[in-house]
Design a protein around this nucleic acid. Structure first.
Length: 414
RNA sequence: CGGGGUGUAGCGUAAUUGGUUAUCGCGCACGCUUCGGGUGCGUGAGAUUCCGGGUUCGAGUCCCGGCACCCCGACCA
């Protein structure tokens, strides 16, 4: 991609009033644009990041036999009345409105009311179970206070997976698989997520949150720095300073954290109101046992920025960076231009994602500052100074090295 | 929903007790300059001062009402 053609521009100054790191850097870097509080446009750069997070999620959900579907955001009132959630908490969290003929609708803020009747249409026997369905879709929640950039929106990206089982044992086994898959998702995104025991809220008593320690977190958790055992403050019985009840070695610490994922054992909470049942080997009707599993890709993106940045800008982990390589051409004479073009073409040939700063009017200082701000993990410079070679520097490091084109391709591939 | 803060050009801002044609920087356009850390100089375009009402000879500035954004709290499957 040629930077001269890239839609969006970097900003020298942070947007007024904005305090959260992710809002400041994502806006300044030209990743997102705020339309109104809690509602963002993803510009080309930002969409690439978001899509990479989604793709990692997708791969890990597929790996635990998830099948991707896409459910509607617009949902009729009736399905929500079945569970009573049209009024509680629907009146509070749901955007509700009327269509033609006064038919009432709401925007989806979770999808149990859609997925449960859906599964009922196709599942009738124990032979049809288990089923694992997921989607990646924007959720809408009328939050009392949208804030902190991507951290809490009223429209935000979410992956929700729903599992359907014949008994609790099968659910418990899958729950463990999902837990492991979630850890993989977050570690692939560069995040160290603590599996945190939490209240199930209105869902159930059995839930785990995936919490990433950061000062900008909204939750407070107590955790063990040694074994990673953690509990949300809302339910905790453990206290800071006490020995970890699990490993008995370290003292429990208190910290701010952001919730990037949450998994629940729903059991029959939704299968019962919708009468989702199956017939077992003995011809007996039984309720289907359910679980649900959520990850917020947009919140993951925000959390990554909160954690991976310095005073100059973002430092993306390779796995979700908008591009793998940022190639800067410093100087405008023909020889340099030619050389940069050769490097660019070679990278494209090697199928390495590259953003080429070919802007003729930008000075060296501007290009370096923008590269730091945007935070692509590998920076290449071609200039009069680099001679036959190319300067290579990681965003996360200070030192640069001069390498040949061939060495370079190897270095980036590793 | 309670508390606090802020609304002036695409972005960031200045404007005395209410007083001329609303300031400066960034960005943008043009010219020169410069070319390894937001280079320097010049010229130019760009504004319903959040919206509505009021006071006044005169309102960005004062008063009333509303809206939006940010922060704290409440809330948060």
């Amino acid at each position: 991609m040629l930077q001269s053609k890239l839609f969006g521009k970097t900003l020298k100054e942070p947007p007024k009033d904005e305090v959260s790191i992710n809002a400041i850097f994502l806006t300044r870097g030209g990743f997102v644009d705020k339309l109104t509080a809690g509602v963002y446009t993803y510009l080309p750069l930002g969409l690439r990041v978001l899509n990479k997070v989604k793709q990692i999620v997708r791969e890990e959900m597929d790996a635990i036999s998830g099948q991707e579907i896409l459910m509607p955001a617009i949902q009729p009132k009736e399905i929500w009345q079945t569970t009573g959630r049209w009024t509680d908490p629907g009146k509070e969290v749901m955007f509700q409105f009327k269509g033609r003929s006064d038919k009432e609708f709401g925007l989806g803020w979770t999808h149990e009311e859609v997925v449960t009747p859906l599964v009922k249409k196709f599942v009738s026997s124990y032979k049809d179970l288990p089923v694992y369905l997921y989607q990646i879709q924007d959720k809408f929640r009328s939050e009392p206070r949208a804030k902190s950039g991507l951290m809490r929106g009223i429209e935000f990206s979410m992956k929700d997976l729903y599992s359907f089982h014949r008994d609790e044992k099968d659910l418990a086994a899958y729950y463990e698989q999902a837990l492991a898959a979630y850890q993989k998702v977050f570690s692939r995104c560069g995040l160290d997520a603590l599996i945190t025991e939490a209240s199930g809220g209105s869902f159930s008593k059995y839930s785990h949150e995936f919490q990433v320690l950061t000062n900008y977190g909204e939750d407070t958790i107590f955790y063990c720095p040694n074994c990673g055992y953690a509990q949300n403050k809302e339910i905790t019985e453990i206290k800071a300073g006490h020995k970890c009840p699990k490993c008995q070695t370290e003292k429990i610490k208190e910290g701010k954290a952001i919730e990037v994922g949450n998994i629940f054992q729903l059991k029959t909470k939704y299968s019962e109101p919708f009468k989702l049942e199956y017939v077992d080997e003995n011809g007996k009707r039984k309720p289907v046992i359910m679980g649900c599993y959520g990850i917020g890709p947009s919140r993951v993106m925000g959390a990554v920025v909160e954690i991976f940045h310095d005073d100059k800008g973002i430092v993306w982990p390779e796995s979700i960076a908008p591009f793998k390589v940022h190639l800067l051409q410093i100087g405008q004479d023909e020889a340099i231009e030619k050389k940069a073009q050769v490097v660019y073409n070679e990278l494209l040939k090697q199928k390495i994602e590259v953003l080429f700063d070919d802007r003729p009017d930008a000075t060296a200082g501007q290009k370096f500052a923008d590269a730091d701000l945007i935070g692509i993990p590998n920076r290449l410079v071609v200039s009069a100074k680099t001679g036959d070679k190319i300067e290579f520097k990681k965003r996360s490091e200070k030192e640069s090295v001069l390498v040949s084109l061939a060495e370079l391709v190897r270095k980036i591939e590793n």
